[in-house]
Design a protein around this nucleic acid. Structure first.
Length: 481
DNA sequence: TCGTTCACGC
DNA sequence: GACGTACGTGAACGAA
């Protein structure tokens, strides 16, 4: 955002960033162990797959047309050429536009057209493989030292909200959602001998920090452990009762309505996302009834009906369910318009020209990261004091990433929990909701691709749970290290 | 060299 | 009543 500056205005804020800077430099120095042999083999394997896919594509009829149009300049990687062939030459109706008004050919568009054009199915796969090879594997290989260590950079001075960023390579956007790409890339990150690789993270960090600002009593009740917000909202979205909300429906309510709404999205976009998910994910209710069938009975038979319905859901969401949150947003905005700035709880002032959504989101995003940074500094200091073998090796906004010596696991996780949920609320009295921590690490001898939940702490229940391979290890079970 | 588009994360 | 996700890094293309 242009013309916006954020500056520390308290001694604590300055100290947080000084200490953060020093801590992050030591974390960078620690480095992450990389399985270079694997990387090189996988790089070659991907190259082979890419070559085969290119060959398959070259045999499709459309390529003859494409080559006739572009001659030797034919380029399968050119979005401009692809858009021309699909929307001008084949006269497909435009599905979505880019910012400049050109027809978009992103993965959503490709996927919709891939039923009709087989070469687009291949192209979807090709883009995925190219991304994995050229953005991730290539840089991991290039940046890894002779000792097999990777040292990503963590910056505190680049982001307008005073979050952090990472580069060379960016350690904060390693694939995790697509199961295939996740495995291909994360398999490269391995623990040191006798260690386990993984992370400890804050659960629902931004929702909780937002709640500290708006103090909405309904939200507060949810966060203190009464009821399930995402299930209740999903019930509204799909016009049913909470007990009929399946796991997939809850997921959609959370990721296609609630979070977008918190970030400032509006009902039309949300409705389209929720509607398309019904078919894409084959949504069914807990009794097995397909969601589409159910909506039909409720009188919703097309997208337009559904948009109208979601408009009503949005109204309930902000004007009934979370009305104090909505009032806070208005007041916070008004104060910004009057003063020309606002302050984060953590002592940073944001001033300059900001849009509505920026004013609401910046203080949450910034302060949320500052909680992680505060905890990171203390955990790192404690590990140094006690001369632990384990190393903190990175940070991903609300997660501390460690290469952890397995015999130290229990002490570290309990200490991290103590810092992240107990010590921090003593220093920052503005944190008025219980915090949550969970940890996921790979079993001995495995890689980051195999991380599994081993520890959870639910603040509202004041309850610690050990699970997975670590529970077996701690119980004296079969896990070998 | 730089703006645009795409794709990955929280 | 109109308007409307936030924050990043990095690759590739293609016009300047």
């Amino acid at each position: 955002m242009l013309n916006v500056s954020v500056n520390p205005i308290t001694d604590q804020a300055v100290k947080l960033f000084h200490d953060g800077c020093l801590t992050l430099s030591e974390i960078e120095e620690n480095g992450i162990l990389i399985d270079l042999d694997y990387c090189k083999k996988q790089y070659k394997a991907l190259t082979n797959k890419i070559r085969k896919l290119r060959k398959l594509i070259s045999k499709e009829d459309v390529v003859k047309t494409w080559k006739r149009v572009y001659g030797k300049d034919f380029n399968i990687n050119s979005n401009a050429q692809l858009a021309y062939i699909i929307f001008d030459y084949y006269k497909e109706p435009v599905i979505k536009e880019t910012e400049t008004g050109a027809p978009a050919v992103d993965k959503e568009v490709l996927h919709k057209l891939s039923k009709k054009y087989k070469f687009l199915k291949y192209l979807e796969k090709l883009r995925k493989l190219l991304k994995a090879r050229d953005t991730y594997l290539k840089n991991i290989i290039e940046e890894t030292s002779d000792k097999g260590l990777l040292h990503p950079i963590f910056n505190l001075h680049t982001v307008v909200t005073f979050r952090s960023s990472s580069s060379n390579p960016n350690f904060q956007n390693i694939p995790i959602r697509d199961p295939y790409v996740k495995r291909v890339i994360r398999r490269a990150f391995i623990p040191r001998e006798g260690h386990t690789f993984g992370g400890i993270d804050y659960g629902g960090s931004e929702v909780k920090i937002a709640c500290c600002y708006h103090k909405d009593p309904v939200m507060m009740k949810y966060l203190k452990g009464a009821g399930d917000m995402h299930r209740d909202v999903a019930a509204d979205c799909y016009k049913t009762t909470p007990d009929m909300v399946s796991k997939d429906m809850r997921y959609c309510g959370k990721n296609k309505f609630t979070f977008p709404q918190f970030y400032g999205d509006y009902y039309r976009n949300c409705a389209v996302g929720l509607w398309e998910a019904i078919d894409d994910m084959d949504l069914k209710m807990t009794d097995g009834t397909p969601v589409k069938e159910h909506l039909k009975k409720e009188g919703i038979t097309c997208l337009d009906d559904f948009i109208e319905h979601v408009r009503n859901v949005e109204d309930i969401f902000w004007n009934k369910r979370f009305k104090v949150y909505a009032q806070w947003k208005e007041q916070w905005l008004e104060d910004y318009w009057k003063n020309g700035y606002f302050d984060m709880y953590t002592g940073f002032r944001c001033q300059g020209v900001m849009g509505k959504n920026d004013v609401i989101n910046y203080p949450v995003q910034g302060a949320s990261f500052h909680c992680l940074l505060w905890s990171l500094i203390r955990l790192h200091a404690w590990m140094k004091e006690n001369k632990l073998k384990s190393k903190i090796v990175g940070q991903i906004h609300d997660e501390i990433v460690l290469d952890m010596y397995i015999p130290e696991a229990k002490d570290i996780l309990l200490k991290a929990k103590d810092i992240m949920v107990n010590e921090i609320v003593k220093e920052w009295k503005w944190i008025i909701v219980p915090l949550e921590v969970d940890a996921a690490f790979c079993p001995p001898g495995k890689s980051w691709a195999d991380k599994e939940t081993v520890f959870e702490y639910i603040g509202s229940k004041d309850e610690v749970t050990w699970s997975g391979w670590l529970k077996e290890y701690l119980d004296g079970g079969k896990v070998k290290c």
